[in-house]
């Protein structure tokens, strides 16, 4: 299974991250190897096997509906590079 540059750019749009040509040259082989390895799983017989989502077999873990103190606004916004009027500043959305 060959992976094309066109497919890569589709993924880049979805993930909102780009690889430079140099980076892709460096990582292409790893990506292709990973893909080949993933394809190899097809050979495993999983007929009738349920998927495992988590190794922890818990159910119904819930909390009571009680308000607890959260973060102070200044404390939270201090982590952001751009804020305005108590909000996170977002460049225009196209």
């Amino acid at each position: 299974m060959e992976f094309s540059a066109k497919e890569l750019s589709k993924l880049e749009v979805l993930a909102r991250v780009n690889l430079s040509e140099k980076e892709w040259d460096r990582c292409r082989a790893a990506f292709q190897n990973a893909l080949d390895m993933a394809v190899s799983l097809q050979a495993v017989d999983t007929e009738g096997v349920e998927p495992t989502i988590s190794p922890m077999k818990l159910v119904n873990v819930m909390r009571e509906d009680e308000i607890r103190p959260g973060l102070n606004r200044d404390e939270a916004l201090a982590q952001a590079m751009e804020t305005e009027s108590g909000c996170y500043k977002v460049p225009r959305i196209l």
């Binding site: 993924l11 991250v17 690889l19 980076e23 990582c27 790893a30 990973a34 893909l35």
Partner: peptide, 20 residues
């Protein structure tokens, strides 16, 4: 931000995860 802030190994892994 993501392109400049993250290293190539991380980005490649993110893209592979996006794919699968």
């Amino acid at each position: 931000s993501r392109t400049q802030g993250l290293g190539p190994e991380v980005k490649t892994r993110i893209l592979f995860g996006t794919y699968v």
